[in-house]
Design a protein around this nucleic acid. Sequence first.
DNA 1: AAACATATACGAAGCACGTCGTAGATGCAA
DNA 2: TTGCATCTACGACGTGCTTCGTATATGTTT
Lengths: 155, 155
Amino acid sequence: MYELIRSIKTAVIMSKTPIPKPTESELEILQVLWQHGPSTVRFTNDQLSQKREVGYTTTLKLLQLMLDKGLVLREDDSKTHVYRAAVREEETQGLLLDRFVDATFGGSAGKLVMQALGNHPTSADELAQIRSLLNQIEQQRNNTSNAKGQTDEPA
Amino acid sequence: MYELIRSIKTAVIMSKTPIPKPTESELEILQVLWQHGPSTVRFTNDQLSQKREVGYTTTLKLLQLMLDKGLVLREDDSKTHVYRAAVREEETQGLLLDRFVDATFGGSAGKLVMQALGNHPTSADELAQIRSLLNQIEQQRNNTSNAKGQTDEPA
DNA sequence: AAACATATACGAAGCACGTCGTAGATGCAA
DNA sequence: TTGCATCTACGACGTGCTTCGTATATGTTT
């Protein structure tokens, strides 16, 4: 019965919100769901509790709010509900990255990259990956030097 | 008289807080101070108002709170106070970057860099700079394979 | 069926942040 | 010196986020 009301409310209210921005706590939960797939409240809470102390009902409430926001989906066949992420990992990270670059680095992604590489230990493997991406970008830029516009499409 | 009380309170309470984390609004103000140097409330507010509507007393209050937190310093010789940043730009950005990498990319700076380069238009100049930094890091990594300390000084 | 363990729903409190109104202080112009 | 413009100080409100307590529902075990 509870569920029915909630479902209706959710369906009506949330119809067309573009992309909700998760808070930090919500992000923590999304990390769990991305990493482990669909999870129960209990499991999610256990995962979170490994890093810091969190009450069970806190995690539950968060997941319910995230359901309202459309950040997660839910399957409630049995007594125990199962939640799964409704937003993709990279897409969400990209959204947050945009905001962060604007707010903190005045929109300059280059500055951010410099800082990130300078201050954080990065594996040789990742460095190689970055270098490869760099090549790809510059090559693409040369190819389209007099084409109509340079897209910043990565692939 | 107001100032005296505030000064004492500030001096006593704030004695040794390590590094306060600025909020988004505080960051906006810091951007202005970093870019234009010491500024009055009026000037700061004018700058902020170019991007979005902000009340004068809002900016004032923010600056006062930032003073309490130790994010800015103040010279009040004349009637009109002059504020200047008490934290350095790169240091602050680094602090925020740390938190962001942890919260959003699970601590992987490499992932963040890949996303940033992939999704944001970056000038050829910046790309070259990044490539140079990349070289520097890898070279350094080879040299210090058994030496004691590698500095991560960029310049 | 009754008792128990475990799940969900929801109200409410505490806090931080951003915003503004208003009172009081200060300097300048007439 | 009296007004007027401009500044600072500060209280208070609205909102969003996080947390938790408690009531209610549901499934399981005896």
